[in-house]
Amino acid sequence: MALKGNLRDFTITQLLNLVNLAKKTGTLVVEGANQSARITFREGKLAYAEISNEDNGLGAVLHKNKIITRAQYNTISKRAKTISDKELGLMLINAGYVDQRDVIISLQNHFMDILQRLFSWVEGIFYFNPGETPPPDRIPIKMDLENIIIEGSRRLREWEQLQDELPNLDLALKFTDRPGVNIQNLNMSVEEWKVVSYINPKNTIRQIGKAAKMSEMEIRRVVYSLLQAGLVELVRPEGMVRTLPGLDQTMAGKSKEEQENLVNRLIGRIRQL
């Protein structure tokens, strides 16, 4: 079913978070004010990216990464119109111009560059085409999204936006147990590590901020990026004083059997509707 919307309401970081956690395969198309981009994922990992009005071919990517010279790039552009990136890559490797690592790293840099530019787009529509793979002539890679997400979340600086994203600082945090994610492998800042060390269902976000000597704004930003990367989740703090009457109060003075009887009568009645 449809996965589409507007970047004003749903950011690139949130989309990457969705793709990452749902381990999606397919192509995300983002149409911005002047350009459009296509980002392809395989099982929640980045596989490929391209942006309109620019040369996304391997020759251009290698030249941008200073792996080949402008002259070599020009020759390739002229001669390699008809051959695929996969063939070109093999040819260049076989001819000893580049090695496989150069190719992969250059592509990674190119894709990252496209994503980083997307982070700055505030206007645009997006839609996700499930199952759509990269163009067959291109070289796909496999890159984890967590670091990209953390990087993208750091850019969300505006106070109002952060406040919307994280309205309640009196909630606590706990680590999610997601297999395959090793927190040691993430590029976190000193600030982020400091927060991580205080995470515990007993500590509210506000308390963590105090302990880490951060302003509300700073703690919000850090917590937001950890949330987006799927590393932590919000929980009701242990031992929090409940401010509103709960089920106990609604059911006050009733035995357990009477309470169950009441709910069962409700269920029975609704079934009949």
Partner: peptide
């Protein structure tokens, strides 16, 4: 999806304060 953010904020408020 433009309302998801608000929905989440309503949910979080309710979850935190209405213990039902």
């Amino acid at each position: 999806p433009e309302t998801f953010r608000e929905a989440r904020s309503i949910l979080e408020t309710f979850r935190a304060y209405a213990p039902t």
